[in-house]
């Protein structure tokens, strides 16, 4: 389970990191890293200002 980050869309603002209940995301310079604690809850995808994230079920 994970999320896919469209790095061509992502504005690397870190909003998704702040809402991730599992602490699975991290903003590093200009990209988002996702670790294996992601539960595919979809909150990050919901709140992304530009719609750069999509849940992989």
């Amino acid at each position: 389970m994970s999320v896919n980050v469209n790095r061509y869309k992502c504005g690397y603002c870190g909003a998704c990191v702040g809402v991730c209940p599992a602490g699975a995301l991290e903003l590093v310079e200009t990209w988002i890293e996702v670790n294996d604690t992601c539960t595919s809850c979809g909150i990050c995808a919901k709140i992304c200002p530009v719609g750069a994230l999509a849940v992989i079920k």
């Binding site: 504005g11 909003a15 702040g18 809402v19 991730c20 209940p21 602490g23 909150i43 919901k46 709140i47 992304c48 200002p49 530009v50």
Partner: peptide
């Protein structure tokens, strides 16, 4: 616990 719920964040452009 600093995790923000969707209602705890304003998402901006």
């Amino acid at each position: 616990d600093t995790c923000l719920k969707p209602s705890d964040i304003n998402t901006c452009t």
